[in-house]
Nucleic acid binder design. Structure first.
Length: 441
RNA sequence: GUGUCUAUGGUGUAACGGUUAACACAGCGGUUUGUGGUACCGCUAAUGAGGGUUCGAUUCCCUCUAGACACCCCA
């Protein structure tokens, strides 16, 4: 054995708020990616990747300069060329930029896009909240029919349900340019008279973000919120009609939803329909797994022509957290079909060829050629869950044979090494047929 | 930014202020290079950092650091 150096004392560690996604977690990620991809295909969405880095101005304009996501939490920097850049805090702005920049208005409308990508916000880390976090999201650009709202809500609901979660939709309409400003005025007027009864945070909210007053957790604020004017009662005709239609379509779909006047989105670009997807198994805690809404003015705001749009996004880490909480079932781990074990230098050399052959034939194979003891190798084969082991020792080399060991029952057979691959394939087929038969019963 | 809690090998835990910091799992090696899932033996490996109290600190106190959780906000 070579001399082993001791670990040095100073270790560079993970940056705060960042997370390694280790192999033992990947099953969750694979599952989510697969479900998202499958849903996207079924619903006719195409995948899009936009850069992690965008001009800071993009987010200031799209997301809103006053939002926390942009004003407090954005990773911004000036690069070597003096450009003001930021890591994206969300993905809709980038998608819309791409839509405009690549003239997607010339494609058949609406354009339906989806992404699965890391986002960055310099927040204080917490359960299910990281500074680099992943979101999958869906956007429909170029359609304002309320039926699309209902379909998008249903899609977001469906995906999380597919992942084994008990979810519920909280839906609201926050109006548009023609009614929201008036509503906010009404709301602030209502609160002005009761200002002294509000908690300190809410007194700040009154100035900064009055809509947030509605979901304060402090009792006296909640009591006030109960009688506060609600957005839905102050929608203009157009918004009202739209929202009513959304709900009507939603009733047709098999979606559990709740009208919730407290749903207010954190980003400025939203209009009309807004919703959140919450997990319902744990009472009290209604941490949103995802959220979405219409953003009919965003394309225009970003310099394109007026184009209605709607989208939603879900936080992947949060979804995984919940999946763990409810012990959602995961697909079985990958197992190699065959493990090749060797004894002796000749066998090791021969095994190199055997491995190539097996891989060429698409037999999934595992080995530890560097290990010498047979015991250790079989132990490894077992841990890896191999179905068969091919054992190749001195004796087999001399005879031109190889041992096939069934790892489930320990039965071994000697076969001609030239037929080894075929023999393995034959057995694997039997295995597969047996499995299918078992399932069909 | 505010608050609460926590800090022992890779992981999970243990140690009235008092020997060489214990146990389990994992990892690695061995039990005449030939048989795993189910034996036995061994090895590797830890008190976050710095101060203080004390004859003596993993244990008590302070500072820092890191982490977890909650608030804010959000996905």
């Amino acid at each position: 054995m070579p001399k082993v150096k001791k670990a040095s004392k100073s270790v560079i560690k993970l940056v705060k708020g960042m997370k390694d996604i280790l192999p033992n977690e990947q099953a969750y990620w694979d599952l989510i990616r697969n479900k998202v991809n499958a849903a996207a295909k079924d619903y006719g969405f195409q995948y899009i990747d936009t850069p992690i880095v965008e001009a800071t101005a993009l987010f200031k304009r799209a997301v809103g300069e006053e939002t926390d996501a942009v004003s407090k939490e954005m990773y911004s920097f000036v690069d070597q060329g003096g450009e003001k850049l930021s890591l994206r805090p969300e993905n809709t702005a980038g998608v819309v930029r791409a839509y405009i920049e690549h003239g997607m208005l010339n494609l058949p409308q609406p354009v339906k896009l989806f992404y699965f990508a890391p986002q960055f916000r310099h927040d204080k880390p917490q359960a299910g909240r990281y500074r680099q976090f992943w979101q999958f999201g869906f956007e429909v650009i170029g359609e304002n029919d309320p039926i699309v709202d209902a379909q998008m809500i249903s899609l977001s609901y469906f995906i999380l349900q597919e992942l084994g979660l008990n979810v519920e939709i909280q839906v609201n309409s926050i109006g548009d340019d023609s009614c929201r400003p008036k509503y906010i005025k009404t709301l602030t007027n209502y609160y002005k008279d009761n200002k002294k009864d509000l908690c300190l945070d809410c007194q700040k909210r009154l100035l900064k973000n009055p809509l947030r007053l509605l979901d304060c957790k402090v009792k006296k604020c909640q009591d006030l919120a109960k009688d506060a004017p609600q957005t839905v009662d102050h929608l203009c005709d157009e918004c009202n009609k739209h929202f009513t239609a959304v709900l009507e379509y939603l009733d047709e779909l098999d979606v559990k939803y709740n009208l919730n006047s407290k749903i207010v989105r954190g980003l400025d670009y939203y209009t009309k329909t807004a919703w959140e997807i919450v997990e319902t198994s744990e009472e009290g805690k209604l941490n949103a797994l995802g959220g979405g809404g219409r953003y009919d003015d965003l394309v225009y705001l970003m310099g394109g022509r007026q184009t209605p749009a709607i989208g939603f996004a879900c936080g992947v880490e949060r979804v995984i957290n919940k999946m763990k909480d409810v012990k959602a079932s995961l697909p079985e781990n990958w197992r190699p079909d065959v493990y090749v074990a060797t004894l002796g230098p000749e066998a090791r050399k021969k095994a190199l060829h055997l491995l190539l052959e097996l891989r060429k034939e698409k037999v999934s194979v595992s080995e530890d050629l560097a290990k010498t003891g047979l015991k250790g190798q079989l132990e490894s084969a077992d841990k890896k869950g191999a179905r068969y082991a091919l054992i190749l020792g001195q004796k087999e080399i001399v005879d031109g044979t190889v041992l096939i060991r069934d790892m489930e029952n320990g039965v071994q057979e000697v076969v001609d090494i030239k037929k080894a691959v075929k023999e393995v394939q034959k057995r694997l087929e039997h295995h597969l047929i047996a499995k299918v038969l078992k399932k069909s019963k």
